[in-house]
Design a protein around this nucleic acid. Structure first.
Length: 316
DNA sequence: CGCGTTTGACCCGCGC
DNA sequence: GCGCGGGTCAAACGCG
């Protein structure tokens, strides 16, 4: 097999070890994985043809570069986690000092509050778990309800402008139980329940963004109490005509796609997280919130779009 | 025939 | 208390 002919650059040009053929002796790559790979590479040097040698060299270098890139991204995510925890502690402190602070119960504000507080909330039936915090510190009931409200997260999906469907491809199976035109948005809002209901009480609201009709906003309430269907039924094709999350349009096998809608089991935190911070347990909701925050960040979106389009143009 | 979607009616909380 | 609006229910409908 000729690797060089089917070479696909997976870099997003994050300025991590740019794709020059510079030796990476200074790269802080200390994983045993690389040692094994390097040993394998050196053993293979004795017997393979020169063409394959070049391919192997290129592959190993690409692997090193991608791994370094991955490490850098992991570091950024870790930093975001720390910032999140700091912000969350500050907010808790602020709410403790300002018990008279009134909060509206409008969904947007509840949602944004949960985006800040959600990492500390567990369980999908929040109403039954509110008693503990009520006892620890006496706060106005509204605030407590806002804090303990079921996990709410938002995910933004980019769609074709001509596509009017409100079906979102997040891997789970949903049953639509209602649709409503709301006052603040001319596009209808669709209501979904997890198909595992009533055992799984997760709900989802899907509505097109007012600002950008090509963007579909999915609001998830609660947390699935069952494995992700893709883990048990990888070839499940029942979800037809569905919208993919904001991601590179190319589905080339070597393309690195950050699919934040695929949820890792809560008992198995990200391995990358564990590498950099073994004690850290990143809740799924936090990952979703960070992904949402990133997608909301115009600078990040612009940079991501530029990197992707640049790569696509480069490959063409 | 079974399952999922559609859609009008109904429920309920909130603001006035 | 009333009206409004979001959320849910359930019968009708469509599709495979």
């Amino acid at each position: 097999m000729d690797f060089s002919s089917s070479w696909i650059n997976t870099s997003l040009d994050l300025n991590i070890n740019p794709r020059t053929r510079v030796h990476q002796q200074a790269a802080p790559v200390s994983f045993k994985k690389y040692e094994v790979e390097n040993n394998f590479f050196s053993l293979g040097m004795m017997s393979i043809s020169s063409a394959k040698e070049e391919s192997s060299v290129a592959l190993v270098e690409e692997l090193k570069r991608v791994s370094a890139e991955n490490k850098k991204l992991t570091g950024m995510l870790t930093e975001m986690c720390e910032n999140y925890n700091t912000l969350r502690n500050n907010l808790m402190e602020y709410m403790r000092k300002n018990p008279d602070h009134k909060e509206k119960r409008k969904s947007d504000e509840i949602s944004s509050s949960n985006n800040l507080m959600g990492g500390g909330v567990t369980g999908n039936n929040s109403e039954s778990s509110s008693s503990d915090e009520d006892q620890s510190c006496k706060k106005p009931r509204q605030i407590v309800e806002t804090c303990i409200k079921a996990k709410v997260s938002r995910v933004y999906f980019k769609t074709e402008s001509s596509d009017s469907s409100l079906i979102v491809k997040d891997g789970y199976q949903w049953r639509k139980y209602g649709q409503k035109v709301t006052r603040d948005n001319p596009s209808p809002r669709a209501y979904f329940k997890c198909s595992f209901a009533p055992s799984c009480t997760v709900k989802k609201k899907v509505q097109r963004s007012v600002d950008d009709p090509s963007v579909v906003v999915a609001t998830y309430e609660g947390e699935h109490n069952h494995p992700h269907p893709s883990q048990t039924e990888p070839t499940n094709n029942r979800c037809r005509n569905q919208i993919s999350p904001v991601a590179p349009s190319s589905s080339a096998p070597s393309t690195v796609t950050l699919d934040w809608t695929k949820k890792a089991p809560s008992s198995a935190p990200s391995k990358n997280m564990m590498i950099n911070n073994p004690k850290m347990e990143v809740p799924q909701i936090l990952v979703e919130q960070m992904a949402t925050s990133l997608t909301k960040d115009l600078n990040f979106r612009a940079a991501l779009a530029a990197a992707i389009s640049g790569k696509m143009l480069h490959q063409n």
